[in-house]
Design a binder for these strands. Sequence first.
DNA 1: AGCACGATGCTCT
DNA 2: GAGCATCGTGCTT
Length: 209
Amino acid sequence: MKPLPRDFYRRSALPVARELIGARLVRIHDGIRLSGFITETEAYVGEEDLGCHAKAGRTSRTAIMYGPPGHAYVYFTYGMHWLLNVVTGEVGSPAAVLIRAIVPDEGIEMMSEYRGRPDTDGPAKLTQALAIGRAENGADLTRRSSGVWIELGITVPRRRILTGPRIGLNTVPEPWKSKPWRFLARLDGRTIVPTSGSAIPARRLRGAP
DNA sequence: AGCACGATGCTCT
DNA sequence: GAGCATCGTGCTT
């Protein structure tokens, strides 16, 4: 399936974060196709957002966010973790959507091997499962040739998407700390049924009510 | 089920 | 030098 087009990302981070819920994140690694459905995202909207790395302006780390939309912003944190974001908005306007969780679909065994455990319900867990790191910073997510992209997945109706404050912004001042810019699939104890494979129990999702 | 803590190194002040 | 868009372990209810 074709990657989502650049225009999808050429908008503010909020609608992009909401609409990425249910989309399929695909990774080709060592010739193996790995994928999962995005179930949790967060929006980081620009320099004025004091929770966003771009609050410090344009630096070598944040430069990617000032570039064209649809590219990966992958950064290193806590001395050991890589986190995957998608750049949104026009060139010159730094914003991004953090991918926080997926439900694995294709290549589950390989993901489990890369990570050492089967879970992908966390921003650093999924990058480990998908073998995403420093080398993927700047990757064009609208081209399959980059080895990482996002395509249509399952449809999650709006009323099945929960919102809440972003996670981990402990010293970020209000109102930014509490902005409800976290989006997550609400599964109601049901199952997600991928078009390509078997049903996935909702209880594998952390944060599902 | 939930909280506290340590790991570990880059980025910005 | 402080802080960090986290995770796994170990300990307490």
